[in-house]
Simulated scan of single mutants.
Amino acid sequence: MATFVVLVGAGLIALVCGIVPIGPDWLPGIGSVVVASTYAWALAARTGGRPVVFGTLAIVLGVVTLVADDDSLRTGAAVMTCVVAAVLAVMATVPAVRFVQVVRECVIAMLIAGVGAMATVGFEPAITVVRFEYATFGLSLVGALLVVFRLGAGFHGLGRRGLAIVVIGLVVVAVTLLYAELLRRYGAAGMVESLLDLVRWSRTNLGAFPRPIETVLGIPALAWGCHMRARRRQGWWVCAFGVAATSAVANSLANPAIALRESGLSVLYGLVLGLLIALVVIRIDLALTGSRGSRSRRAEEAAAVRPEPARTSALL
């Protein structure tokens, strides 16, 4: 854990120097390589893989990218960094018995993804913003589902409840992305203008507008999943959809039209609103599956001790 913190801290300092800016032009690239390779190492260690192999491979690819200075390599490295950061942010969480612990886990995930966002832009990718966001989200979701598939030892660990969660989650993702794309391409002028007016008002008066997929799907899924994992193993399948939030954070700085301050506020607003939605979802879940009354709820929390490895230990 100490090694991880030191390496990420060193990489973050190099990335911040590039923002200020202080130091040589190549310093942010070095910071990106350090963070990306450390994240790759940590994700492999957390998921029971080979951290030395994947960490070394990430270093080699990062150095080659910086030396070659090719747009395609830089873009590929940025995508890899964004995806690894998004998946690691979800995998680094631990079960949460109470809502206060749920908030803690979501904040930790956002911080991990936030550092990943800085490392992503440190590679200076040449991208189309919308395509980059879709690609990183899609790859992150596939990666998270594959890891959870391994954690659950296949689909037979889903059960009816888990299967319903996965199906509903995929439907929500599909509907959200399809609606956004249809609205962008074929939406009625009046409806689009009304939505844009809301976004403009929020950006003018509040400094930012929360990203819908983070607020409506990502944070609630991550929060509810961490809460469920303390009670049922199917919670991991819910957590997998938390990459809707972590990938949104990890690619949040890729849009050059949005300032750093606005990106930060957007993430913060999405986190707060998403946690409020999660609180309602968790309360409904407890009302339907748990015991009623404060005394029964305290007894349920005391019994919610499903074992899971510590944050710094391998899940497999």
Rank of each mutant, 00 (worst) to 15 (best):
E181W: 14
N255M: 03
N205R: 14
N255C: 08
G218V: 03
L275N: 09
A188P: 08
S263F: 03
V243M: 02
P212D: 05
R161K: 14
A259R: 09
L271C: 12
S266N: 03
V267Q: 00
V171S: 07
L268H: 09
V175K: 01
I277R: 03
L198S: 10
A250G: 07
A248D: 09
R161N: 12
C239S: 13
A189H: 05
A164N: 10
F155G: 12
R184F: 09
G190T: 15
R233S: 15
L271R: 06
W237M: 11
V173T: 11
S266T: 04
A221M: 14
S266H: 02
R184G: 13
T215F: 01
I282S: 08
A259G: 15
R161A: 15
L182W: 10
E181I: 07
A278E: 00
R229P: 05
C239E: 12
L260R: 09
R231Q: 11
L170K: 05
G207S: 05
V249L: 06
R200F: 11
Y186P: 03
I165D: 13
E262L: 00
F155H: 13
F241M: 06
S252V: 13
E193V: 07
L195S: 07
V216F: 09
V199K: 01
V280M: 15
S266K: 05
P212F: 07
A240Y: 09
R184C: 05
V267K: 00
A248P: 02
T176A: 11
G264M: 04
P220H: 04
A245T: 05
N255G: 06
A208P: 08
P256N: 04
A221K: 03
L260D: 06
G218M: 00
R261H: 12
I282C: 06
R150Q: 10
G190K: 04
G270E: 08
V167L: 13
I219W: 06
A254C: 13
N255K: 05
D197H: 13
Y186W: 11
Y179N: 08
A223S: 08
T215G: 03
A244G: 13
L151T: 04
T204A: 12
W236R: 08
G157A: 14
L276G: 04
R161P: 09
I258Q: 10
P220E: 00
A250Y: 04
R200K: 08
A230M: 11
G235V: 11
A244M: 11
M191N: 05
